[in-house]
Amino acid sequence: MTAASTDTLRVSGLVAEVGGVEILHGVDFEVAPGEVHVVMGPNGSGKSTLAHAVMGRPGTTVTAGRIAIGDTDLGALPSWLRARAGLFLALQQPIEVPGVGLEALLTEALEATGRVGARVSEVLGSEADQIGFDRRFLQRALNVDLSGGERKRNEILQLGVIRPRFAVLDEIDSGLDVDALAAVARRIERATSEWGLGVVAVTHFRRLLEELRADRVHVMVGGRIVADGGPELAEELDASGYAGYDPGVPTDR
């Protein structure tokens, strides 16, 4: 890991609650540009809360700790300013926005960071082809009449056009068949070299690691990261499960 890089995404001592219930009890990790980190944990370990706390979802309240890219503290910023600082979240369940086209959204997204969106349609087509997303779907309203897998690909498509510095991928593997997952993983890996994308992929399935080459694996149980290591950590998990790490009772989220 590139220690103390000025461009590193650094999460330290993160404590967060939802609906008055503390879900994250102090989470630390650092992701350098170009690195892929996978956060693994069972259902209810707090993975999605981590994703939303980093992105700044209203209702997910950070009560302690720090989220920063380099020297820029993101913790006090609303989600749209975190996005402009270079963060991106691929939602676990991308939601429908009737009447809003992908191109209109991405044009606005690029304009928001001072980039001209004139070539959005070209880039969209090329990104769609890379992950096997049917070009016909590009004309549809956001996630409307798309299957679960198509919605997930749609998130990666947006990532490819927006080109964020860091992407949090919330269970990007669920809903994708093997071929689609492989295509998505290839696209993410290319992004790490194309523009140095840093990735935090949260999942509870090891199969993501079979497709996505990870630099670091973090094991999350009960709102804490209980182990860090290389990809080999996932194999240990396969043998022993999460129970061996359990520091307490898992929460509901």
Binding site: G99, L106, A112
Partner: peptide, 27 residues
């Protein structure tokens, strides 16, 4: 949720609201 989704792409609250309402009618 729609507003958060669009804001997570960097749209200001005003831009997100405008796009969602326009979409509501475009639909």
């Amino acid at each position: 949720d729609q507003r958060y989704y669009l804001e997570s792409r960097g749209l200001s609250p005003e831009r997100a609201e405008r796009l969602i309402v326009l979409g509501f009618f475009e639909d």
